[in-house]
Design a protein around this nucleic acid. Structure first.
Lengths: 209, 209
DNA sequence: CCGACCATGTAATATGTTACATGATTGT
DNA sequence: ACAATCATGTAACATATTACATGGTCGG
């Protein structure tokens, strides 16, 4: 269901083509939902059939046509009802942590590389979110500005507050994962000092005799 | 792919029936992967066909039979290779935050209920993880103890370290979400004080004249 | 004129959820 | 006897990913 509402949400901000939506829902963009265009185009047709959106063919150049979709009143209602409902969660599935607990037989170096990659990943994510939040708060974020247009001061403030909470939560999570990775690496170092190095030194001592 | 390895991982700890695996991979259990039994039984047959596990029919009672699956050497290798590889992540999909940013037109009470539910959910999750970690560290966790059996002291220590890191990361995340929700509620209160209450007072003053 | 990007679709496959289906065992 | 739980499966549907497929537009 979430894809429907990710699309409706974006269309409630501004009309879009399927291509625009595919850019917005790109997995690399670090938004709250993502989907490939192969999933978006069929969903748009279903949404139009359900009367939640309306597509208008728009010429681009000489021969090409794109469909610009606009949300209908029914669509706005459906989105509002969904957004005001109880929060929706997906079951916890974390392949990264799953790998980690079954890496207890792997060489220490492999574990260390795993955690370093983790730190890098979330470090980059944190930086990306920082950029987005900065753009939003300095009122330079085009998509957010489009959403605020025509709203009263307090309405704008609430909209910005919720957005900052959402991105802020993600940012803190990314920061947490970076700190977690740093702590994990320190603990691995300590483990190696206590066990691997001790073993090696013993071996060296014995071979000297 | 992750389901394969979640199953192989559990079987690398101890042989299990499909039913056992379904309990272990229950979504309510707060593990790192979950799946319904309807997904598990077919996957077990595929794993057996691939030679990564072997099932032995075991009588239970008079007529009933269960298949107890054991990991093969090939399965152990496949798991080790997977676990030592670079970390695997799923694309970010967060229906809860998606709802939140499109709730900017919803009544404040609905937003507040949303965030309270969020706090409760992660509060419960944090408590559940605390229980698990305590059981692991006090060496009372049967599944973990099964995994440690027959290993040297340092090997056990590394295994426990990785598990504590994995659960610790999840615990911290749950704690973060609780703190986030508390802060969010405070900000909503402040927003209401500044805007909704002010508006109401103005209205009341005008009607008094 | 060529490469990057705009624009839209389908097909095949993989993964995940819900419902349907059946029957045995165990403890009270 | 009855309920809870053990035990295993299939079917239908929903969702997500990867690959295949086509052609136009725009700027350098």
């Amino acid at each position: 269901m979430a894809l429907r509402y990710a699309i409706l949400g974006q269309l409630s901000t501004t009309p879009c083509s399927g291509y625009d939506l595919a850019l917005y829902l790109d997995s690399a963009r670090g938004s709250f939902w993502c989907a490939a265009h192969s999933q978006i185009y069929p969903e748009l047709r279903r949404l139009e059939e359900a009367g939640l959106i309306e597509g208008a063919p728009t010429p681009v150049g000489e021969k090409l046509e794109k469909r610009i979709y606009t949300i209908t009143d029914a669509g706005t209602d459906a989105l509002a009802t969904w957004a005001a409902g109880t929060p929706i969660y997906r079951p916890n599935r974390d392949p990264e942590r799953l790998q980690l607990i079954f890496a207890d037989r792997a060489p220490l170096d492999a574990i260390r590389r795993h955690i370093e990659a983790h730190r890098d990943r979330f470090g980059r994510q944190r930086a990306r979110i920082d950029d987005i939040r900065e753009a939003i708060l300095s009122r330079e974020h085009v998509r957010v500005e489009a959403r605020l247009r025509g709203r009263s001061g307090p309405e704008q403030e609430l909209s910005l507050l919720l957005r900052d909470l959402a991105y802020g939560g993600d940012r803190e999570r990314a920061a947490l994962e970076v700190k977690w990775a740093d702590r994990a690496l320190a603990l691995l170092d300590a483990y190696e000092r206590d066990h691997v190095d001790v073993k090696r030194r013993k071996r060296e001592e014995e071979s000297r005799r």
